[in-house]
């Protein structure tokens, strides 16, 4: 009899899903991902969780509820830290408890700690504890762990080849992403948490919209880790949030790239770390770069007009400025 583990399509799903899935596959455990975000899922989440939580957390609760009744376990690792001397947002840390205390009759949660903050901590320990839930064979867990790391690397290398997460057509050969027919004239970097920018509902399909307006979209996930870490060192002091380091590093990198015409910073309303990095990026933009930067804050709006107006105006601005630069280049 095989069991099914539910994985909410939210938060760090967007980084680690390939790894998690491979791990469970090798243990003979079925996985089920919650359905794509809809208004219904978001509303369920909003109703069941404390008011102060940020939008992505509310949404994640909705995804947990979407798995309700369809799975034997829900995989909600308590992710404290994924890198030495760095932390993940504190809301992630408390997330399993928030869920447990607000929702009754949940299937059992798999919420072991993943904490790599201290020297000597290891990722394997986390996966070993999770694996023990399903098998007593340590060799099997080790094989599953190794395979899961391999699939995470594959995923990262696909991203570095220019694919977007979970885009149809990713072939895992790390081939350069093909152009979608027409080569776009502008390139826009979207800087934001993956769970905000890749979720088509709460981002109001921002990536697709920009592509429709004729832009190539690049994100922080297209960069290898060492690149954004190096770039983030331009800050006078290291940030202690891993994900925001990634965002700041990526923003600095794209500000320097000649092929990138503009940057869009996406924050969710009420996000503490984002309000900080948003400001850091904005200051950098003003001091060191001539590239346009747009700050977008997303929340529970369903009206798309605000988003559409800003994106359209931003694209107009980018194109207009480029034209001027082209003219200047021909005259001087």
């Amino acid at each position: 009899m095989s069991v099914t583990v539910g994985i909410p399509r939210a938060l760090l799903y967007y980084y680690y899903y390939p790894q998690w899935k491979t791990f469970f596959d090798h243990l003979g455990v079925k996985t089920l991902v919650s359905r794509e975000t809809t208004r219904g899922i978001l509303e369920k989440g909003i109703k069941s969780i404390v008011d102060e939580a940020c939008l992505p957390v509310k949404l994640a609760v909705g995804h947990v509820l979407d798995l309700y009744g369809r799975v034997d376990y829900i995989f909600l690792p308590r992710i404290v830290s994924t890198a030495r001397r760095e932390y993940i947002c504190p809301k992630f840390l408390g997330f399993p408890d928030m869920v447990r205390n607000n929702i009754d009759n949940l299937p059992p949660l798999i919420d072991y700690d993943l904490d790599l903050y201290r020297k000597g901590s290891s990722l394997y320990n986390f996966f070993y504890t999770v694996g023990r839930q399903f098998t007593h064979n340590p060799a099997r867990i080790l094989t599953a762990y190794k395979a899961s790391m391999e699939s995470l690397h594959m995923h990262c290398r696909d991203m570095e080849a220019g694919w977007l997460p979970f885009e149809p057509g990713v072939n895992h050969n790390h081939e350069q992403r093909p152009h979608d027919g027409n080569i776009h004239d502008v390139t826009i970097a979207i800087i934001g948490h993956p769970y905000n920018i890749y979720d088509r509902y709460i981002s109001m399909n921002m990536i697709k919209r920009l592509q429709d307006y004729g832009a190539n979209v690049v994100t922080a996930d297209h960069l290898p880790e060492h690149v954004f870490r190096r770039e983030a060192e331009k800050l006078p002091k290291q940030l202690f949030w891993t994900m925001n380091q990634r965002m700041v590093g990526a923003a600095f990198y794209y500000f320097d790239r000649p092929e990138v015409d503009g940057l869009i910073h996406v924050a969710s309303f009420g996000c503490g770390p984002d309000s900080m990095t948003g400001e850091l990026i904005e200051r950098f933009a003003r001091k060191e770069s001539r590239k346009p930067l747009l700050n977008l804050t997303i929340d529970e709006h369903t009206g798309e007009a605000g988003m559409v107006t800003r994106l359209e105006a931003f694209m107009d601005m980018v194109r207009w400025r480029r034209q001027l630069d082209d003219v200047a280049a021909t005259y001087y």
């Binding site: 309303f269 346009p292 700050n295 804050t297 605000g306 105006a313 601005m317 207009w320 400025r321 001027l324």
Partner: peptide, 13 residues
């Protein structure tokens, strides 16, 4: 700047 939009902002909520 130089006759071209360089930056803009709109009120949020």
């Amino acid at each position: 700047r130089n006759g071209v939009v360089a930056d803009f902002a709109m009120n949020t909520v």
